[in-house]
Computed example of a mutant assay.
Amino acid sequence: MIALIGLPGSGKSTVGRQLARRLQLPFFDSDHVIEQRLGCSIREYFEREGEDRFRDLEASVIDELTQGPAAVLSTGGGAVLRPENRQNLHARTQV
C-alpha cells in the first residue's frame, strides 16, 4: 500500500488517483471515506462535534484502510498529527 501525506490542497488526491490508475490499484481518499460514512461534510462534523471526535474517527478510518489490500491512500492534511496514524502509516504503507 502507498500512502500520500501532505498539507491540505497540496495535490494528494489528484496525484493519488493518477498513481492508482497507473499502478492499477484501488484509490482511497480517507476524507471522502469519512464523509460517506458521516453523510455530511467534514467541516460540518468538525464544527458540530469538535476536533477530538473528528480525529478519533479519522484514526479509525486510517487504521481500517491501512489493513486492507494493496491500494493508494490519500490522507487528510491533519492525519499525521496523531501518533497512532503515523505509526500505522509507517508500519503498513510506503509513505
Rank of each mutant, 00 (worst) to 15 (best):
G16R: 04
L4S: 11
E64P: 01
S13M: 03
S60D: 12
T75G: 05
E64H: 08
M1P: 12
V80P: 06
R17E: 09
C40K: 12
I62L: 10
G6S: 06
L23G: 03
R48D: 09
M1C: 14
R21H: 11
P83E: 07
G78S: 08
E64C: 02
D29W: 08
P83G: 04
L89I: 05
D63P: 00
R17V: 10
L25V: 00
Q18E: 05
G39M: 02
V15D: 04
G39V: 06
A91K: 14
A91V: 14
S60C: 09
F46M: 06
Q18G: 03
D52P: 02
E51H: 12
F28T: 04
G16D: 05
G50V: 11
Q36S: 14
S30N: 10
E84T: 13
L81G: 07
F28C: 01
A91M: 15
A91L: 15
G9Q: 12
N85Q: 06
L7Q: 11
G78I: 06
Q94F: 12
V33G: 00
A20R: 04
T14A: 11
F54Q: 12
V61Y: 03
L4R: 08
A59D: 07
C40V: 01
A59F: 05
Q36D: 14
V72L: 11
E51V: 12
F54E: 06
